[in-house]
């Protein structure tokens, strides 16, 4: 009798320990992924730069060397320009990179995803993109003052069709500056 009671108690304790362990760890103690008072900026874009060089006309000799069905007079390079992307927060550059196009022939889109933790509050965001190696300076730029609450996420993307940066998240006052086309600053 004594053995049965001892064994039953022992089994109860063992089962309790087991489910206690599983129950305590799934879910378990809270984990802080982002410190208090911080917000997040995600800079992410996927964009194909302009062709690395202009199209050109083939010479008569070049055309003669080609098979008759391949004799197109204009030839354009497949390779795309690398993207030069810069992000500055409150006039301090926090990201500056040259993004190479994907693919063996460097003819694909370049992409980037960068997550930054920043102090919450008002921030002057300035983002610039150069996507044409033949032109000096940046082709696209946007400057925006944003207000980020703690844990807010501001997503900065690039809309190639509109040729402009897209800001999503936080509190965005009316747009302050930006030029989607043409010249350098």
């Amino acid at each position: 009798m004594k053995t049965v009671v001892f064994r039953s108690l022992g089994q109860l304790v063992a089962f309790a320990m087991f489910i206690g362990l599983v129950g305590a760890l799934a879910p378990g103690p809270a984990y802080r992924h982002l410190d208090a008072g911080l917000a997040t900026i995600k800079l992410s874009l996927r964009h194909a730069g302009a062709p690395i060089a202009p199209c050109r006309e083939r010479t008569a000799e070049e055309l003669a060397q080609l098979a008759p069905n391949m004799r197109q007079s204009t030839v354009c390079p497949r390779e795309r320009s690398p993207l030069v992307l810069e992000l500055a927060l409150d006039d301090r550059v926090v990201f500056d990179a040259t993004l190479l196009p994907r693919g063996i022939h460097r003819d694909g889109r370049a992409s980037v995803y960068q997550r930054l933790s920043v102090p919450a509050g008002d921030i002057d965001v300035k983002v610039r993109l150069k996507d044409d190696a033949r032109i000096e300076g940046y082709q696209y730029q946007r400057t925006q003052r944003v207000k980020l609450a703690p844990a807010d996420v501001l997503v900065i993307d690039f809309d190639a069709e509109r040729g402009d940066f897209v800001f999503d998240g936080g509190s965005l006052p009316p747009r302050t500056m930006g030029h989607p086309a043409g010249g350098a600053e």
Binding site: L25, A26, P27, G28, P29, A30, Y31, R32, H33, L34, D35, A36, L38, A39, T40, P150, A151, D152, V153
Partner: peptide, 9 residues
């Protein structure tokens, strides 16, 4: 952002 999360450890 999920700042604090109860993880399944």
């Amino acid at each position: 952002t999920v700042a604090i999360v109860e993880l399944d450890w």
